[in-house]
């Protein structure tokens, strides 16, 4: 590459990252201000910088809006990275933890422990230990599903068959969860609702305190895998001849995916089409497959996408608040269809 294009490329990338950070901050602030009770800029200012006054705005801000916005960011970051890693791990550009049933596996893990524990200790899940149990169950559920899909992928070379099988696994798990919900008593149902299957709006700072370390751990594992991920783009054989310990590398990526996807599913429920869409947006924007660029890019774009969905789901002036899952799907699906059509039509 000659030096001028090299430089202009670096400049373009830096500019894109700066713009993404600005967009992130702007959306974060808008997300905090919006909701059933609108917080004005001046109120926001006072709530943050004049903490002596205990205003309503401050109460709403610290108890509801801030945890919600932080959860949106965490969910976006985690889903963006886990989607990117899943696609490279399976060498399948249409893979994602949701598409392959890994998220549903995490949900099933949560549903099972909630079923078991709530029989004996109905209030267990309101404790911090309860949060840890939930996350552990989600990660185990996600891990078992990932292992199963990895095994299937090693036997089946066809990309589309793998996706269809993944979707069926996911549908089967969701059905089992529905059955569990129907069979459960009232207090159990309440536990499900408290754990907010499909919402980031019930989360408090104590939940975030458990989620954050897991998301950070998953992200660190992803960053540590940059070189292996790049080598794995060429397939396992090439990666091995490039000096990568493939099994060790895949194990790190595996844990990164289940920590990220499992944690978010456990606390926020299914948020569809973020994981599959974000890596494609990152590749389009930065025009590369280098994970050194793609991991931070997916992290930023994931945050932007979930924040934006959350803002749109509670459009100002209306009392309706839509499930965030519907918004992310409506944003992601057209893009995925466009990518599919472009691939198939050449």
């Amino acid at each position: 590459m000659d030096i001028t294009t090299d430089r202009s490329q670096t400049f373009y990338r830096r500019l894109s990252f700066i713009l993404l950070i600005i967009l992130w901050l702007v959306l974060f602030i808008i997300d905090i201000m919006m909701g059933k009770v609108e917080i004005k800029v001046s109120e926001l200012w006072n709530a943050i910088f004049q903490s002596s006054q205990h205003s309503d705005a401050q109460l709403i801000l610290y108890n509801f809006r801030l945890p919600k916005a932080i959860a949106a960011v965490l969910a976006g970051v985690a889903l963006g990275i886990s989607g990117l890693l899943t696609q490279t791990y399976f060498r399948n550009p249409l893979a994602g933890p949701d598409v392959l049933g890994v998220s549903a596996g995490a949900s099933l893990g949560v549903a099972v422990v909630v079923l078991v524990f709530s029989q004996f200790m109905p209030t267990y899940f309101f404790t911090v230990a309860g949060s840890w149990t939930i996350i552990l169950a989600a990660c185990i559920g996600a891990g078992l599903t990932m292992s199963m899909i990895t095994l299937i992928a090693s036997m089946i070379r066809d990309h589309v068959t793998l996706l269809v099988l993944g979707l069926m696994v996911g549908a089967a798990f969701s059905s089992i969860i529905t059955v569990i919900q129907y069979l459960s008593n009232e207090s159990l149902l309440k536990s499900f609702v408290v754990w907010g299957f499909g919402s980031i709006r019930h989360l408090t700072f104590s939940h975030l305190a458990v989620m954050t370390p897991f998301v950070i751990l998953g992200t660190v594992l992803a960053f540590l895998s940059i070189k292996s991920l790049n080598a794995l783009l060429l397939g396992e054989k090439y990666a091995q001849t490039l000096g990568i310990h493939v099994n060790r590398a895949r194990l790190l990526i595996f844990f990164s995916i289940i920590f990220l996807a499992g944690t978010i599913t456990a606390f926020c429920g299914p948020i569809a089409f973020v994981a599959i869409t974000v890596p494609h947006l990152s590749r389009m924007l930065f025009r590369t497959n280098d994970h050194f660029v793609l991991i931070p890019a997916s992290l930023m774009i994931g945050g932007v996408m979930v924040l934006l969905s959350d803002i749109l789901s509670q459009w100002p002036g209306s009392d309706i608040s839509l499930p965030i899952n519907a918004l992310t799907s409506l944003m992601g699906i057209p893009l995925i269809i466009a990518i599919l059509l472009r691939r198939k039509m050449g």
Partner: peptide
């Protein structure tokens, strides 16, 4: 093996040799 599922430019491919 000559099929690569992801967008990979020739330059990116050759650079992977430096891993």
């Amino acid at each position: 093996e000559t099929s690569f599922p992801f967008y990979l430019s020739v330059y990116d491919l050759v650079s992977l040799g430096r891993i």
